[in-house]
Nucleic acid binder design. Structure first.
Lengths: 139, 139
DNA sequence: TTACACCCTAGACCTAACTCCAGGGTCAAG
DNA sequence: CTTGACCCTGGAGTTAGGTCTAGGGTGTAA
């Protein structure tokens, strides 16, 4: 009861659709759920956490295949392989974070110019940002 | 000459395929290039910068539609609209950066546990990380 | 004036990650 | 023991962002 859910509840609580849950099971991102005699899947709350983890990783640019390799609990999973995977992911993440910061700074500069122009010529239709992005100066 | 390129050169210099360049033109992410009498497109170096900008933004999770609205130089582009768009993008970017950092920390913790375990039991097949991710603790 | 790399268009095809559908079964409440 | 909400499977369809193909023209160096 307290820790037993049908697919619709899991979907609602984890913010994905029922179809997506079944799709994840097919892709082995979720273990095959046990069934009721009638064939209904029975999930527990760990499934919900797991789905949230998948969504978070995905949101940060990891593909389902990559997430799958991080999650693969299959018998032969040994520590060293997981360590190496994590190491690689962290390096990737660092790179992404760095260019994210750069892009953030670039947009901030654009925004400042925009405000500047609006202050100086409130009715201007010629946005310096448009011109600049169109000509895409190198950062 | 110095600032005039055929599509193949632009592709090579900006790291995308020829098809992608034509596709971007169709999607109006690039202005319709002028043509030679025979119909060949003629690009200048600003196109290359622009493609690099698109790729950068895309890499950070912006869709081509979003990038398009940022780049739209169409007649009626007025400063205020661009300012608002930029503002929204920056907020988004901040959110993404924040959860990226959190995810980074989470992976770092996993990695530390992994190393720990390897140091303690060099031949261990039971990775604590696998267990933990499988059970997806909430961060 | 031909050889050969390069370019053109329209439109079909591809991959990832879903999303929908038909046709049918399950189950708790009344 | 029926009703209505919910679940099942297999397979087709969708969207974003390209990528490929057929059939044909261009440009320039030898």
């Amino acid at each position: 009861m307290g820790n037993s859910f049908r697919i619709g509840e899991v979907a609602e609580r984890s913010g994905v659709s029922i179809d997506t849950l079944r799709y994840y099971e097919r892709r082995n991102l979720l273990p095959a759920a046990p069934r009721t005699p009638g064939g209904y899947r029975i999930f527990n709350s760990e499934t919900i956490d797991r789905v949230l983890f998948i969504k978070q990783a995905q949101d940060l640019g990891f593909s389902l295949d990559e997430i799958g390799s991080l999650l693969s609990t299959n018998g032969s999973s040994e520590c060293r392989r997981v360590r190496d995977l994590l190491d690689a992911k962290l390096t990737e993440l660092d790179t992404r974070l760095k260019s994210m910061h750069e892009f953030h700074d670039k947009l901030t500069r654009y925004l400042a110019e925009c405000e500047e122009e609006l202050k100086r010529h409130p009715d201007s239709a010629e946005c310096p940002v448009v011109v600049e992005i169109a000509h895409a100066e190198r950062t």
